[in-house]
Computed example of a mutant assay.
Amino acid sequence: MSEKPASTIDPGVRIGHVHLKVADLERAVPFYRDILGFEETYRRPGAVFMSAGGYHHHIALNTWESRGGQPPAPGTTGLYHIAILYPTRRLLADALRRLIDAGIPLDGASDHGVSEALYLRDFDDNGVELYWDRPREEWPRDESGGIKMKTEPLNLRDLLAELETEVA
């Protein structure tokens, strides 16, 4: 007898890796490797696979259909951004420091109540969100207990101050 599917997706389901079409691997790889700090795990013709912590890959960059191509025009469909989750606020602050040191501009920085996020573009104009989640018990809730997200400016000086505090 087959198991009846659940009405909602199992909470253990996760979104795994992302493949990004890029125009030039030698231009794209330094952004993810040298600036964000991902490690190259595997390379094959037309593709580079990268990870955090030795996983097979979190991000793959490929030119299989896009070598020499242009970013999609505004007003077209496609990927809005990839989101990279940092485990702590301090590590998000370190990512911000890396971006500043590399001269990478931000498109925005927001406090969403449940998370704090930095928004930017990679060298192929792909949207990238770098964020950390606050502990669930700190998430803002409405009167019925539902999540009440917001979008307010993120204080970048306050975020960078995380790097000045001693790690226990």
Score class of each variant (00 low, 15 high):
residue 87 P to W: 01
residue 73 A to K: 13
residue 61 L to Y: 08
residue 104 I to M: 09
residue 129 E to P: 10
residue 110 S to P: 00
residue 68 G to R: 06
residue 65 E to F: 04
residue 69 G to L: 10
residue 157 R to F: 02
residue 47 A to C: 08
residue 9 I to V: 15
residue 61 L to F: 12
residue 46 G to V: 06
residue 43 R to S: 05
residue 127 G to C: 07
residue 50 M to H: 06
residue 137 E to T: 07
residue 67 R to P: 00
residue 115 S to Q: 06
residue 19 H to C: 05
residue 97 R to M: 03
residue 63 T to S: 09
residue 44 R to V: 15
residue 164 E to F: 00
residue 40 E to R: 13
residue 62 N to I: 01
residue 74 P to I: 05
residue 36 L to R: 05
residue 133 D to W: 03
residue 120 L to N: 03
residue 128 V to M: 06
residue 21 K to P: 03
residue 58 H to N: 13
residue 91 L to P: 00
residue 119 Y to H: 13
residue 130 L to C: 09
residue 31 F to Q: 01
residue 155 N to T: 04
residue 40 E to W: 02
residue 89 R to G: 09
residue 2 S to F: 12
residue 153 P to E: 10
residue 150 K to N: 01
residue 153 P to L: 01
residue 17 H to Q: 12
residue 148 K to P: 00
residue 78 G to D: 12
residue 63 T to K: 07
residue 156 L to N: 03
residue 14 R to N: 05
residue 36 L to H: 06
residue 148 K to Y: 00
residue 151 T to S: 14
residue 56 H to R: 07
residue 52 A to C: 09
residue 55 Y to H: 15
residue 72 P to A: 11
residue 27 R to C: 05
residue 140 P to S: 07
residue 32 Y to S: 03
residue 79 L to W: 07
residue 20 L to T: 08
residue 99 L to G: 02
residue 144 S to H: 13
residue 159 L to E: 04
residue 60 A to T: 10
residue 117 A to M: 08
residue 21 K to I: 00
residue 42 Y to S: 04
residue 55 Y to V: 04
residue 22 V to D: 03
residue 77 T to R: 11
residue 85 L to S: 10
residue 129 E to T: 09
residue 2 S to P: 13
residue 150 K to G: 01
residue 10 D to R: 07
residue 20 L to D: 08
residue 5 P to V: 09
residue 86 Y to D: 00
residue 55 Y to S: 12
residue 19 H to E: 13
residue 75 G to H: 04
residue 95 A to V: 11
residue 126 N to V: 06
residue 82 I to L: 13
residue 44 R to T: 14
residue 44 R to M: 15
residue 118 L to K: 08
residue 95 A to G: 14
residue 146 G to R: 15
residue 150 K to H: 03
residue 22 V to R: 04
residue 56 H to F: 07
residue 66 S to H: 12
residue 80 Y to Q: 15
residue 69 G to I: 09
residue 149 M to W: 01
residue 125 D to C: 12
residue 93 A to T: 09
residue 79 L to T: 13
residue 81 H to N: 14
residue 136 R to H: 12
residue 71 P to Y: 09
residue 42 Y to P: 00
residue 89 R to D: 02
residue 64 W to L: 05
residue 99 L to K: 08
residue 78 G to W: 06
residue 138 E to I: 08
